[in-house]
Design a protein around this nucleic acid. Structure first.
Length: 376
RNA sequence: GGGGAGAUACCAAAGUGGCCAACUGGGGCAGACUGUAAAUCUGCUGGCAAAUGCCUUCGUAGGUUCGAAUCCUGCUCUCCCCA
């Protein structure tokens, strides 16, 4: 994988670039739709490509490992062959599940012992086997196995957690170096910077990961319960240290505003379940603000889902009908909302990129941030 | 015509003397959701003050009782069975 930094402006840390993988190019800043179980929920490949214009999607090691199982994916010839998505794929390592599964897992020096949320069976993830699994899944970008420290972690815990993540990273890196891709295309391992909301921890973590000379770096453990200002502050601290010429990926973020603010602070890559999950639950993101389509006020609003929208579904369906679908639990409702939201997110980062290249990002961002948070 | 059952908040349905402004489900209204255990979860849903308070409710009109959605009587209506 290669990264070409195309443009940095003077009044912002925002950057535009191009990531080149063996499955195609990614223009940054970019938003990556989340497809945990190998599919972006409710969205066909054709829509993802042609309508939403996704350039890269995510998969999840933990979920794919439990179901369908690594052997099936290996038999299929890797995740690209399995799910039919021939563009770039990034897999998360399962570090987030170690965090979100809470009481059904236990951390040791060796790794994370956990119970399947599906059948309760016991499993062990180690930095080594997570690398092996991700080799078999075959994503273009794979993530280090880390502990995603909770946002409200005490300093002592955060420090200890960070040290574990650091040792795990070394083991991930070694294993990754010692193994080769299964399917002929290159894979890149991204280290993850942890350190909760403590600037000195974040700083040390950023310095440490930089030593690896990776193809890209991730900032993890944010948007996990801490105030937004802390998230921005940590991003600034870390991006000050991460190498300029490598992409930075802010994991799990976020709202449209979060994304613009983070682009402004030098982040290149984002992923978040928000456009799909919140979409399924009736929340629509638009250029004019946020719509809760379940609210009564949309019941007889026959205007397009989003008159400013770029998605096929924005023009094809009206708000009242979408509301009816979602309230009636019709699956088409979830599909339309997800498709709209993803198209909006991809439009947003594309616009950001355009403004960065035109050196008008800062002003445009300030204007957008005010609109995007409005509740309609 | 004879016999039986029942009427509870928007709907369905518990409750059959005080712990009942009334279980629960649906519907309705709002909220949450950030590397997806999520087509999920939470709250409110008689009125008014909205915090611990007050007022009016369980078909309807009376009665018994310190106290009634719950017991008694009349009335109205609904459903079922037999002719």
């Amino acid at each position: 994988m290669q990264f070409e930094l195309q443009y940095t402006a003077s009044d912002t840390k925002a950057r535009a670039g191009i990531i080149e993988t063996d499955h195609g190019k990614i223009e940054t800043p970019i938003f990556m739709p989340v497809g945990t179980a190998g599919s972006v929920k409710g969205i066909h490949k054709k829509e993802l490509k042609e309508d939403i214009k996704a350039q890269i999607i995510l998969g999840n090691t933990y979920h794919l490992y439990l179901r369908p199982g690594v052997d099936i994916i290996e038999q299929a010839g890797g995740l690209h062959r399995f799910n039919g998505w021939d563009g770039p794929i990034l897999t998360d390592s399962g570090g987030y599940q170690v965090f979100s599964l809470g009481d059904i897992r236990k951390l040791t020096e060796e790794g994370a012992r956990f119970q399947s949320h599906i059948d309760g069976s016991y499993h062990l993830f180690t930095p080594e086997n997570v690398m092996d699994i991700q080799r078999k899944i075959g994503a273009d970008i794979v993530m280090a196995f880390d502990e995603c420290t909770p946002g409200d972690a005490e300093f002592a815990y955060a420090k200890k957690s960070l040290e574990l993540t650091r040792r795990w990273l070394e083991r991930c890196w070694n294993r990754f170096e010692q193994t080769s891709p299964f399917y002929g295309h290159r894979q890149s391992l991204f280290p993850i910077v942890q350190g909760a909301v403590y600037p000195d921890l974040r700083q040390k973590a950023a310095e440490h990961v930089t030593l690896f000379g990776a193809d890209g770096y991730a900032i993890g453990g944010l948007s996990v319960g801490e105030p937004e200002e802390e998230m921005y502050a940590m991003t600034e601290v870390v991006n000050e240290i991460l190498p300029q010429d490598k992409p930075r990926y802010l994991m799990g973020v976020g709202t449209p505003v979060n994304i613009l603010e983070s682009i402004d602070r030098g982040v290149d890559m984002f992923d978040c379940v928000m456009p799909t999950r919140n979409g399924r639950n009736g929340m629509l993101f638009t250029i004019e603000g946020i719509i809760n389509i379940k609210n009564r006020k949309w019941a007889a609003d026959f205007s397009p889902v989003d008159p400013n929208g770029t998605s096929f579904v924005d023009r094809q369906y009206n708000k009242a009908f979408l509301r009816h679908l979602i309230i009636s639990n019709e699956m088409l409702g979830a599909q339309i909302a997800s498709q709209h939201n993803l198209a909006f997110y991809l439009w947003l980062v594309k616009e950001a990129r355009r403004h960065i290249l035109a050196n008008t990002f800062k002003r445009w961002k300030e204007k957008m941030v005010k609109q995007l948070a409005v509740r309609l």
